[in-house]
Design a protein around this nucleic acid. Sequence first.
DNA 1: GTAACGATGGGATACGGTTTCCGCACCGGC
DNA 2: GCCGGTGCGGAAACCGTATCCCATCGTTAC
Lengths: 362, 362
Amino acid sequence: MSERKASGGAGRATIRDVAERAGVSVASVSRVLSGNYPVSDELRRRVMKVVRDLDYVTNAHARSLAGGGTPTVAILINNITGAAFAHVAKGVEGAASLRGWLSLVGTTGDDPERELALVNLMRQQGVAAVVLLGGAYDFDEYQLRMARFARSLDAAGSHLVLVGRPPLEGDVAATTVDYDNEGGAYAMASHLLSAGHRRVLVLPGHSELTTAQGRLRGARRAFEAYGVPFDPGMVLHGPYDYGHGYDAVEESLRRELDFTAVLAGTDVVAAGAMHALRGAGLRVPEDISIVGYDDIPLASQLTPQLTTVHVPYEEMGRAALRAVADRREGGAGRRGGGDGAHLVLGTHVVVRNSVQPPARRS
Amino acid sequence: MSERKASGGAGRATIRDVAERAGVSVASVSRVLSGNYPVSDELRRRVMKVVRDLDYVTNAHARSLAGGGTPTVAILINNITGAAFAHVAKGVEGAASLRGWLSLVGTTGDDPERELALVNLMRQQGVAAVVLLGGAYDFDEYQLRMARFARSLDAAGSHLVLVGRPPLEGDVAATTVDYDNEGGAYAMASHLLSAGHRRVLVLPGHSELTTAQGRLRGARRAFEAYGVPFDPGMVLHGPYDYGHGYDAVEESLRRELDFTAVLAGTDVVAAGAMHALRGAGLRVPEDISIVGYDDIPLASQLTPQLTTVHVPYEEMGRAALRAVADRREGGAGRRGGGDGAHLVLGTHVVVRNSVQPPARRS
DNA sequence: GTAACGATGGGATACGGTTTCCGCACCGGC
DNA sequence: GCCGGTGCGGAAACCGTATCCCATCGTTAC
């Protein structure tokens, strides 16, 4: 029995305890466990028995300190609630655990300061990559800060992956996994226009959010393509939530805005909008058509089922992790910025039951 | 310049690099950074400047190896998608980061083997606690395995927390945070019964899932209390998803089962059921009433808004972390099993628009 | 004026593994 | 029978940080 520590008591068994009890050296135990060195069957058997008896597990901190260790990927998100996030996270986590990697999550709560602190924390943890989810803010200072993060992470042998937002400007060592946001909005708006709608209430989201900007741009382009004048007065900005959809429609109704369709920036916004329309005695889609964006499960669970834009969120998560893993395997010497890969996945309209040609107005 | 490593190049700066460059000892740098030892202003200034210049961050692995380090809590869940989970996770993560703790997540995908492997992995990571989310399976072997996990974790100075499932049998060192599952079901069924419904289709969930068992038990008790015979033929088991709700109702309709209300095991199941009813030309709640369970955002976004049972998921997450944190601060000497705390949070019915007295049958 | 003391900084060691470098023993070949 | 090769196990040097113990210096008290 060791005199350093009562091996049967509390606390964690060390590799030394195992070695002592098995009557072998520490090095041998390590070799048996990692299996990257030839050991005799006899030794292996003896060591493994003690490992089981003591219920020994290696200390991950010590292991990573010594060079080994399982890679970890950090997922940063403003709000862990929210179906779109969940699917990206599922993709990342799934792909990570498939390779034996770990996933850390942190929430930023829309607070840039907190985001900064978290990235730093993750850097301390020595994560293989930091995956930043969701639309970015279009402030100069924000962009600069993010670029500094990217460099900093890169210098530490880690990597920044931006998911669902446009790439950073300049020569920054960050990978971007994005979807065709504007194209989806274009297609969605075109669908509405080709059904005959001309007066459309547009709820793109917060005006500083890059996602919202892209969706608005796509919609406007579609109007131009159809030769329909785009009325800025029909655009209401606000957060991506149920309440905003509800409030925006209610206010538009109160102000007697003339519209036959609602182009919502998000399925959840669409749900809120739908509720407000119903509350005002309007039928969907008979009186007003409505479309969403994201194609989260909610979209097909509403009544009527929502026509929306499908975004391959889970696949984006997988792609993000794949990018990091490839980079880590392939490029041992290509450090130093400048190789910001940029992936763009496609989107497409999912036609369901929330759109009809506009009714003749009374 | 150091001869061990080019300090300006790639790789991570160590505390030694900082010490060297600042012309002080390693110990001093450590003290300046941790701030738990008196240092002169002059020293602090010199060190901090170099820290900024080198963009130095401490190595978390080394730090935790040496005794310090930020605690980490592991969250294990079968499926990261799913609103109920998201809220618990939000609670855990929020409370964790409030204290400066980190959150690891892993998904088990309903695979007991994977769950085992994950718990072991987390044990290696030296997490402060493992939080297991969701209903447990009512197999003996499963219970035994979980008890072994609990012991194992406890021996390593960690702790197992079970959220949303009944406590383990016997004298196991695991904390349980649960909600009044059966009571909620009782109240929900009572609501239906007091509205006059007598023939109720019950979709409790998978029969081996403890959650489903509790909900079924609560419903049955309510029927007894109202003196209404409970017909086992009206109970359809299945997974907690949209498809099951849809299929169950469709089949019941096809088999011409006589019912005026649906008691769904989950809001999502209710959504599926509602869709199937609509597809058959039935109105909700005029023809058929329907209630859910969980009170996820979806419940209030459906049309009609769903009457359901509110479960304080986020608060449960917070409570779980609080339990761990308290235990870690308070009880340095109370290790060794036997103190399985058990918290039960209340539930209540949220009345919305999906229930009406039964229509007179044709 | 000197001894005791408080405030700081430095050196050394521990934390728990991995890995390199060595040595020992055993084997076959000449 | 001696020598070189091979296979396997041990000792020790790290990995990067926190902290204990001691040295030093300037003060304060007697």
